[in-house]
Design a protein around this nucleic acid. Structure first.
Lengths: 347, 347
DNA sequence: TTGTAAGCGTTATCAG
DNA sequence: CTGATAACGCTTACAA
C-alpha cells in the first residue's frame, strides 16, 4: 500500500488542468469544475475560479472529459472513395448536421475495401467515436454478422440486403433508371445504351436490372450489345463508351453515374458526335459535375446530399434514443433535365 | 475518508474492460494489460489472459488509452471548402500518410471563415487531436497571434505572411503563373486575359501580381480590361468570363484555378468560340477536373497532392521530434499541356 | 455551498 | 514474473 503523496501547487509542468485553476483560486477541484460547468458556486467563489481560469487560460481536456462522460462527441463517416463527388455531397450535408449538434465528423476512407470496412466496424468497440455513418456500396455477409452487434450505433446509407438492426437510408435507383428511360423514350430515342459500373456493387446490380425492366416497360427490345460494364469512374466511362461506339450506334446513353456520363460525353464529342442531337446522355447522382460539363448533363438526382443529411439525423436520433424502433427511409429520385438530352435548356 | 470498496467479479454491466479479462483469467489487471500489449508474462499466464480476452471479445478502450498516453492518434485537417477539388486532392494524399502512420484523419470544414479557423485553433487546447494540418487561404492577424502558441503542433499549407513558428509547405503560384504565360506567349497569344478569384485571399493576390509581372516580362502590355475578379468557383468563373467577353476579345484566358477555367471554357463554348483555336484556356491546380472537360484543360500543377502529403509528413515529424528546427517547403509548379491550349494533344 | 474521494479504463511504476 | 496502486484530467456522489 503506497503512501499517499500530496500534491503541491503548480507541479504540472506547463500543463493547465482544473487542478491548476483550483489551486490558484484556492478552492477544491470539485468547486472549480462546478463553476466552470455552470453548476452552482457562490458568487464570490465563482468569480475567483473564473478569474483564475482566465488567468492561466484553462481549457478542459476533451479526452478526460470523454472518459468520464463515456462519449467523445465524434461521429465517424466512412466513405469508399473521396474522389467521387457523390460522396463529397453526402459528407458535406452530414457534416452540417453533425456540427450543428456540437459534434465533429471523423472521416474514414475505406477504398470500398470489404476488409477495411469490417475492420472499421470491429474497431468501433474502441469507442473513439459515438457512432458511425457507413456509406457502402457492397454489403457482404461479413458486414451483416458484425453489424448485428456493433459497439456503437451505425447508420447505413445504401441498400440492405437482409435484416440488419441498423437505421438506414437508401436511394431508389431503380425508380431513377425508370425516370431516365421514360424521359429518353419521350424524346423519341429507341436505341438506348447503358454504361454501368461494376455489377459487384449494389447500385450496379440494381441499375442493371432496372435498365432492362424499364426498356421492356417502354416496349423497347433489350439488346446486350447496348450494354457496357466497367467501373464508376470517368476513365472507365470513357473507355466503355468507346468500346460501345465501335460496336453499335445508340441514340442515347444512360450512365450509372455522372463520372461515367462525363466519360461518355467525352467519348462522343471526341468522336465528333453531336450531343444531344445524335446521341443523348443521362447521368445519375446529379453531382456538381453535371453543371460543369458542356453541354451540361441531364442527370437523375438520387438525393445524395439528402441521404447524407438523413443518415446523420438518424444516427443522432439513435444516440439520443437508443431504444427507439429502427427506421428506414428511401429517397424519391427526380430528373434534372439539362442540355445533354434537350437542346437549349438555358443557353 | 470513504471506506474502500472492493470490487467483485463481473460487475460491469455488459462492458468489457481489462478488469473483466483479468478477473476471468484470475490475474491482476497489470498482468492482463502487459500480456495484451505483448510485454512479458509467462507462457502459462499469457495463454490464460489471451483466452479470457478472446472469450469476452475484449477491445481496449481508445479514450482511456489516450488519456494515459496523452495522445489520441487523431490528426485534424482543416479545409475551407470540401467542394473544391484542390482540397480533396490534398486531403487524399494527407490521409494516406496519416493512416500509414497508424493515425486517423479528422476532417474540419471551416468554410474559409476566419472566425471558425481561429476557434478551431483555440480548441486545440482541448487536445482531442495530436496535431493539425491547416489549409487556409487567408492568414489574418488573428491567426498569427494564436498560431504563435498553439497547444499542439500545427502544419500550415499556404503562404505565411509573417514569422509564425509553424512548419509549412506552400505552392509557388507566382512561378506557376509565369509558366502559364510563357506557354501562351510561345503559342503566339498576345491578348491574354486573367480571370482571378478573390484578391482577399493569398493565392488571389499573389496570382494577380504575378500575372502583371509575367506579361511585362514577356513584353506584353498590361490591360485592365483583360482582368476579371470573382471567386474560386465554377459559377464565378462562368460569370466573370461572360463579362469579359462582352468587353474584349482575348486570344487566351488564364484562370486562377480549374473551377474557374471550367467556367471560362463553358462561357466560350456556349458563345460558339473555338477552344483552343480562337481562345486558349489555362487553369491552375491540375485537379481531376482538368481531365474531365472537353477539350481537356491545360493546367498548371501547383502540387496540391504533394502539399497535402508533405504537410502531413511535416506534422508527423514534428510530433516525433518537437524540438527540431522549423521547416518550410515550396513545391515547384509544372505545366500540364492538354487540349485547351494545343489541339490534338491525345485525340 | 463546499470539499473529499470515487470512478471512467488504461498503462506505468514500484515492491515483492 | 507478478501484483498492488498511482496516474492521466475530468465529473459527480456523498459528506460535512
Amino acid at each position: 500500500m503506497g503512501r499517499k503523496r500530496f500534491r503541491i501547487g503548480y507541479q504540472h509542468g506547463g500543463r493547465v488542468t482544473v487542478r491548476t485553476v483550483a489551486d490558484l483560486a484556492g478552492v477544491s477541484i470539485a468547486s472549480a469544475s462546478r463553476v466552470l460547468n455552470g453548476l452552482g458556486g457562490s458568487p464570490e467563489l465563482s468569480a475567483r475560479v473564473r478569474a483564475a481560469a482566465d488567468r492561466v487560460g484553462y481549457v478542459p481536456n476533451a479526452i478526460a472529459r470523454s472518459l468520464q462522460a463515456q462519449r467523445t462527441g465524434l461521429i465517424g463517416f466512412a466513405v469508399p472513395d473521396i474522389g467521387n463527388p457523390i460522396f463529397i455531397q453526402m459528407v458535406r450535408q452530414a457534416e452540417k448536421v453533425v456540427s450543428d449538434s456540437g459534434r465533429q465528423l471523423l472521416l474514414h476512407v475505406t477504398r470500398g475495401d470489404v476488409a477495411s470496412e469490417v475492420e472499421l466496424l470491429r474497431g468501433l468497440a474502441r469507442r473513439y467515436v459515438d457512432g458511425l455513418i457507413l456509406s457502402t456500396i457492397k454489403v457482404t455477409e461479413a458486414h451483416q454478422a458484425i453489424l448485428a452487434n456493433v459497439a456503437v450505433p451505425v447508420a447505413v446509407t445504401g441498400q440492405l440486403l437482409t435484416d440488419v438492426p441498423v437505421d438506414h437510408v437508401e436511394a431508389d435507383s431503380a425508380a431513377g433508371v425508370h425516370l431516365a428511360i421514360e424521359h429518353l423514350v419521350k424524346l423519341g430515342r429507341t436505341r438506348i445504351a447503358f454504361v454501368n459500373g461494376s455489377l459487384d456493387t449494389i447500385p450496379g446490380s440494381i441499375r442493371h436490372t432496372a435498365y432492362r425492366e424499364a426498356l421492356i416497360a417502354a416496349g423497347l427490345p433489350v439488346n446486350g450489345d447496348l450494354i457496357e460494364i466497367g467501373e464508376f469512374t470517368f476513365d472507365a466511362g470513357l473507355a466503355a463508351s468507346r468500346r460501345l461506339l465501335q460496336r453499335v450506334r445508340p441514340d442515347a446513353i444512360l450512365c450509372a453515374n455522372d463520372l461515367i456520363a462525363s466519360g461518355a460525353l467525352h467519348a462522343l464529342l471526341s468522336a465528333g458526335i453531336k450531343v444531344p442531337e445524335e446521341v443523348a446522355i443521362i447521368g445519375m447522382d446529379n453531382t456538381g459535375l453535371a453543371e460543369l460539363t458542356f453541354p451540361r448533363l441531364t442527370s437523375v438526382d438520387l438525393g445524395g446530399g439528402e441521404r447524407g443529411r438523413i443518415a446523420a439525423r438518424l444516427l443522432l436520433d439513435r444516440l439520443e434514443n437508443p431504444d427507439a424502433p429502427l427506421r428506414s427511409e428511401a429517397i424519391a429520385p427526380y430528373l434534372v433535365v439539362r442540355e445533354t438530352t434537350v437542346k437549349d435548356d438555358a443557353a
